[in-house]
Design a protein around this nucleic acid. Structure first.
Lengths: 222, 222
DNA sequence: AGTCGTTTGTCAACACCGTTGACAAACCGC
DNA sequence: GCGGTTTGTCAACGGTGTTGACAAACGACT
C-alpha cells in the first residue's frame, strides 16, 4: 500500500556506485545523486537514514571485487597474502569510501565474506581461536590502515607519485646532519620503490611475526 | 611595509589548537576560528593557502606530545615500541587531524623529530640502511593506519566501546554456521580486549617479523 | 608633507553540502 | 468514494570553504 516506489535501495546504490566509479567518491553527494536518478535529493532519505548509511553500502559493493575462493595447492600464508593484497587494491581505488568501512565493521555481505575467508585460512594454519582472532585483527589493521595512508597518493598518476617520492627523499637528504643524522643517512632508501612494495614487505613481516609468535609465544622485550 | 599584521601564523595555529583541544577537530572551521581570533574568516587566507594547510600545522603541533628521547638501558625494540604506542595515542585523540598528516609526510618539525628517532633506534638495531627504511615504513603504516581505523571508536566513552565490541562479537556468533563456519567458531574472540591491546599485539608481531626477516632474509611463500 | 605601492583585514557573495518539515501524488483496503 | 499510508517534491535552514572588491594602515620616496 501507499504510493508505488520509483526508487529503491538497489537503484540508489547502483547509481551511487556508478557516480563514484566515474567521478570519484567525492562526487557522491545527495544533490548529484538526485540528479543522476532524476529525483529530488531528499527522496534518498526515504530509503537511507543518512548519507553515511548509503556510503557504507556503496563501500561494501566495491568489496565484491575481492576474490576469496581458495586455490588448490595454495598454502594458507599465500592465501592470506593474496586476499590482503586484493583488499588493499580495492580500497586504494575508493579512498573516501574506505573511511566509513574502516570506522567500524559494517558486517555487510562482502565484508563478511572477506572476514570469513581470512578466518578460514588462519584456522587452516593451525592457530587456536584466540590466536586466529588476534592475527585477523592485526592483518586488517595493517591492510586497511595502510590503504588509508596510501590512498591519497594512489589517486595521483604514477609519474607524479614517483616525482613526489623523489622530492621527499631529496628533502630528507638535505636536512641538517647535526640534528637529523639518521634521516640523512638513510634518506636514499626512504620511499624507495612503490607503495605496494612497501605494503607487501610489511605484510610479509607481520605474517612471519604472527607465525613465530604462535610457535614460541610472545618474545620478552627488555 | 604595509598595514601592520594583527594576525600571524603562530597566533592562528595557537587558536586553532585550542579550539581543537576544547571542542574537537570538527570545530576547526574558518568561521569559528575567525570568531575565536576576533577577525573575519577570510583573513586566515592571508596566512594560509587553505584550511588544509592550517590543519597540517595544527596536526604537527599535537605531535609535540610524543616523547622520543632515548632512555638509558632501553633496548632499541622497546624504544621503537614505546614511540609507536605514544604516536598512536596522540593520533587517537585527534582523528580528523590525523587524516591530513597521514596523506603524505608533512615534514614539519615534530614529524621530522619522530622520524629521526625511529630511524635512530632502528639503526641501533644493526640493520643496514635499506632495511631501516623498509622497517620504518612498515611501522608507520601499521601505527598510523591502525590509529585511523581505531580513532572513531576511541572517541566514544569506554562503556559504549565495550558494548559495541560485545554486540559485534554476538553478531558474528549468530551468523549461519553453514555459510560462515569460521566466523562462528572464533566469534567469541573477535574484538576481545581493547583496541590498544590489539594494536600492541600487531606491533610486537611486526617487530618480531622485521627482526627475523633481517636475520634470515624474506621467507619463501609457496 | 604628500603621494605611491604594498600589505592586511573586512565585507558580501558564491557555490556547495546534509538534512528537515510541510505538502501533494498515488496507491491499498474498506 | 473515503481514509490511511507510502513516496517523491519543494523550499528552506544552517553550515562549509573560498574569492574578489574595497578600505585601512603602514614604509619609502619625492
Amino acid at each position: 500500500m501507499g504510493r508505488p516506489a520509483a526508487l529503491s535501495r538497489e537503484l540508489i546504490v547502483d547509481a551511487a556506485a556508478n557516480l563514484v566509479a566515474e567521478h570519484g567518491a567525492e562526487a557522491m553527494t545527495a544533490r548529484r545523486l538526485g540528479e543522476a536518478l532524476g529525483c529530488d535529493p531528499s527522496a534518498l532519505y526515504r530509503h537511507y537514514a543518512n548519507m553515511d548509511d548509503l556510503q557504507r553500502e556503496v563501500g561494501d559493493r566495491f568489496l565484491a571485487a575481492v576474490h576469496v575462493a581458495p586455490r588448490r595447492g595454495e598454502s594458507w600464508v599465500a592465501a592470506v597474502r593474496r586476499i590482503c593484497v586484493e583488499l588493499r587494491a580495492v580500497q586504494l581505488h575508493q579512498p573516501r569510501l574506505a573511511v566509513l568501512v574502516r570506522a567500524a565493521p559494517t558486517r555487510l555481505a562482502n565484508e563478511l565474506r572477506i572476514t570469513e575467508a581470512l578466518l578460514r585460512e588462519l584456522r587452516r594454519g593451525g592457530f587456536d581461536p584466540a590466536q586466529v582472532a588476534a592475527a585477523y585483527h592485526s592483518l586488517i589493521e595493517l591492510t586497511v590502515g595502510a590503504a588509508a595512508i596510501d590512498a591519497t597518493m594512489a589517486a595521483e598518476p604514477a609519474a607524479a607519485r614517483r616525482r613526489a617520492y623523489r622530492e621527499w627523499r631529496a628533502h630528507y637528504g638535505t636536512l641538517d646532519p647535526a640534528e637529523f643524522p639518521n634521516a640523512v643517512a638513510v634518506a636514499g632508501h626512504l620511499y624507495e620503490g612503490s607503495a605496494d612494495d612497501r605494503f607487501v614487505f610489511a605484510l610479509d613481516a607481520l605474517l612471519l611475526g604472527i607465525r613465530v609468535t604462535a610457535q614460541n609465544g610472545a618474545p620478552s622485550v627488555p
